[in-house]
Design a protein around this nucleic acid. Sequence first.
DNA 1: AATGAATGAGTTTTCATTCAT
DNA 2: GATGAATGAAAACTCATTCAT
Lengths: 204, 204, 204, 204
Amino acid sequence: MPKVGMEAERRRTLIAATVDAIHERGYCDVTMAQIAKRAGVSGGLVHHYFGSKDRLLAATMRHLLKDLGDGIRARLAEAETPRARISAIIEGNFAADQFQPAAIAAWLAFYVQARTTESNRRLLRIYSARLASNLTFNLLALLPRERAAQVAEGTASMIDGVWIRQALRDGTVDRAGAIALVEDYVECQIRLHALQSESVLLVD
Amino acid sequence: MPKVGMEAERRRTLIAATVDAIHERGYCDVTMAQIAKRAGVSGGLVHHYFGSKDRLLAATMRHLLKDLGDGIRARLAEAETPRARISAIIEGNFAADQFQPAAIAAWLAFYVQARTTESNRRLLRIYSARLASNLTFNLLALLPRERAAQVAEGTASMIDGVWIRQALRDGTVDRAGAIALVEDYVECQIRLHALQSESVLLVD
Amino acid sequence: MPKVGMEAERRRTLIAATVDAIHERGYCDVTMAQIAKRAGVSGGLVHHYFGSKDRLLAATMRHLLKDLGDGIRARLAEAETPRARISAIIEGNFAADQFQPAAIAAWLAFYVQARTTESNRRLLRIYSARLASNLTFNLLALLPRERAAQVAEGTASMIDGVWIRQALRDGTVDRAGAIALVEDYVECQIRLHALQSESVLLVD
Amino acid sequence: MPKVGMEAERRRTLIAATVDAIHERGYCDVTMAQIAKRAGVSGGLVHHYFGSKDRLLAATMRHLLKDLGDGIRARLAEAETPRARISAIIEGNFAADQFQPAAIAAWLAFYVQARTTESNRRLLRIYSARLASNLTFNLLALLPRERAAQVAEGTASMIDGVWIRQALRDGTVDRAGAIALVEDYVECQIRLHALQSESVLLVD
DNA sequence: AATGAATGAGTTTTCATTCAT
DNA sequence: GATGAATGAAAACTCATTCAT
């Protein structure tokens, strides 16, 4: 039986072990030995599949980003109005399988690490730019240009803020609250703008 | 005769060197040797003053937190209305001497590290709780109870989000933009509430 | 395929290297690097097998104690009278493979170290108590109770004294002389008691 | 006021601190800083008086040896018969001010250290030779030549053995028991020889 | 493909010693 | 003389990486 896909599975297992190890010990204190043990394989094998610790970490980050992006894309595909697409993006950023302690821990570690690791930085920037552009584009249907850009930035900031603040909570994750907080921000901006436009009209 | 006050100065120098070293190499890759070199002293001296790497890092974090807190307290003391106090808190969180690349880098590192380092976590939680309580208290003069709590949380999240997103920018820091973004959030919430209350009154 | 039994052999080699290193440089001045070099392995390997210097030293001491104990037990098994068993214990304490410069050096170092290292102390106490009890038990066949206890203590003291005085000799080891000295003590006590009992009988 | 003798007093204080430090932390783990602190002086001063750690330790050992030797000499001066002189030597080896936990700890450390430190070894050998010669000389009045030499060696061994075994006791010191044990050995040898000579005479 | 023993470079830490004051 | 700040060499220890099996 030719173990087709064995390699892919091994890689997935190792990446999952990496995420868990970061969660448990912290990014700085993770060792290849811990990851290997957690994945139930020998230390040598991790190198065999990923070449080096750096590459394993990079692969792990790409994996997290991809999962998050996939979730958002899937939700976007089903949303039919600009407003719904904004909600899809927000909800996608707090998808049940991503917004979990271990993934959050790894994600934050990579985020901070990005400051000194050019490859991480590039990946995050691309992701961030896409997010901003997506939000802005859809907000343009509801707000004037400058407002849309600012609210997009505010939304992205609040999403990241909610993620990082998760580090202070003890294991408990509140997806609904996180989504509500960000939605509330967007909704407030949209409504206020609507009311103000309206009153302007009335005055006219 | 040993110079009096030498110790305090040395400690300050070493903490500054630590912040810079974290900025340049990243939290995980900082070594005592780098810090010592940057401070222009021997490796042994760092241990002489701080006992261990862990304790030096802890002292550095406390220092950052204290500076931030001091800045906020000073601004709060001069603010005279609830609204002004909210602005004081926001502005204090982006004080010119704190919201700088090196301090931001160190701050984020400690924030993320807090997940696995109980002492860091405790400090950040205390700081965070005080911030939330301060914001909520002043927002209560402008919004109903549940709204005030939610907006306080939103404000804190957005502040943290703006900090962390700084990691993706290249060295440039936009204090005014950061403050404007958070102020905009608060202002939007307050205005919307005011308008809605008004319309309710009108309807009545 | 990793050689089976490699670990046990490595550990033995490293313990032997430790004993030799203590012999050559003295307990306080032994370094892991010296031990590693002497064993012909890298420094890292010693930690791999023993975890720390303390644990390597503890393992070395246990090894020495075990060898000594084994030698005594083997001799005891072949002795058929109380008197012969006492001789077996004495001879066992100067077994040819234990009473050698390197082993003596290590043994003494551990003995003295025991004063400040609780685990060492415990091991030595157990060993010492067993020796005393063994001696006392067999002496009871030849001497009254209080005499047996005192002579057991004297025997143990003299054995330890002969060991420590070995530190002053230059490499030469005189097993026969050592055994003769202790045997002479025991024999003297037994004979004197016998003669005195006899004379008491005669007087009666 | 010219502090005459200040230096001598300082040296004595530092040596006492050294003995205490060895007692508390063990020979290997003693540091100059501990000794200085214990003596209530700065670290630099210890070097000023002794030049180096090695020289301080050497001075400490000489001091211990001298005290012990003085005690024995004083007792010898008052003893009037060979038998009394033997007792004087034994008692002097367990003098109340020497046979104390701290001094014992230091003494043993130096004894073991002697194996690898030529200067220590020389001192101990001289001391040991003098002890042996003293014992032998006085025993010659009571025993034939070979017996005297052997019993002198046995006495010295038992004295050292009692000292080293003190390391296994917990702080309690039993001078009377120690003296009794060694005296018992000597007395046994003398009596047995007397009885055997007597019986030979009777037979003749 | 898989193992895990082995390496060695790099890091923290300790401490005797020096030296300006 | 006296201090204690400062040094720097040496030690323990860690861990990514290699490699024989």
